[in-house]
Computed example of a mutant assay.
Amino acid sequence: MPATSRRHFLALAAVGATAVACGQATASGGGTGETKKLRYQGWAGQVTLPELAEDLGYFGDVKLEWVGNTISGPQDIQSAATGQIDFGGAFNGAVVKLIAAGAPVQAVISYYGVDAAAYNGYYVLQDSPIHAAHDLLGKKIGMNTLGAHTEAILDIYLQRNGLTPAEIAKVEPIVVPPVNTEQSVRQRQIEVGVLGGVLRDKALATGGIRPLFTDYDLLGAFSAGTYVITKRFLKQNPTTARTFVTGVAKAIEWARTSPREDVVARSVSIVKKRGRNEDTAALKYWKSTGVAETGGRITDEEFKLWIDWLVEHGDIKAGQVKPADLYTNEFNGYTASAAAAVSTAPSPSRS
Rank of each mutant, 00 (worst) to 15 (best):
R7H: 15
K287D: 02
R256P: 00
T26S: 13
T239C: 01
L49A: 08
L52W: 08
Y119R: 00
R266Q: 11
S351W: 11
P323D: 09
G197I: 06
P211L: 01
R200H: 05
A101R: 01
Q236W: 03
L219R: 08
L12S: 15
P211V: 00
P173E: 10
T70L: 15
I99T: 02
G225Q: 12
D308H: 09
F331G: 11
Q106E: 15
V95Q: 08
H313T: 09
L305M: 08
R160G: 05
G31W: 06
R297T: 10
K322D: 04
A94C: 13
L283W: 09
A318T: 11
Q187D: 12
R6E: 15
I209H: 03
E253Q: 08
D76L: 13
D155Y: 13
F244Y: 01
T18R: 14
G319R: 08
A224M: 13
A17R: 15
I209M: 11
E330M: 05
T164P: 04
I316W: 01
T4C: 13
Y227I: 04
Q78W: 06
F233L: 14
D315S: 10
A148Y: 10
Y334C: 10
G208I: 06
T257G: 07
R39V: 04
R274T: 09
N237T: 07
C22I: 14
D315C: 06
A13M: 11
A281R: 14
A94S: 15
A53W: 07
R186E: 02
H131F: 07
E51D: 02
A14P: 02
A221G: 03
G196F: 05
S128I: 04
T344L: 08
G162W: 07
P104V: 00
A118R: 11
G31N: 07
L204F: 03
I141K: 07
T246C: 12
E261M: 02
V342A: 02
T70M: 15
A81L: 09
P238E: 05
G42Y: 12
R188C: 06
Y40H: 10
A345G: 03
I190R: 03
T243V: 13
V67N: 13
G23M: 10
K97S: 14
K284F: 03
E191T: 00
V62S: 01
K231F: 02
L234D: 10
Q78V: 10
P346D: 12
F91N: 12
A118C: 05
A90P: 05
A103Y: 05
S351P: 08
L137C: 11
L195T: 08
T335W: 02
R350T: 12
D76E: 15
A224I: 02
V192H: 04
R276Q: 14
R188W: 02
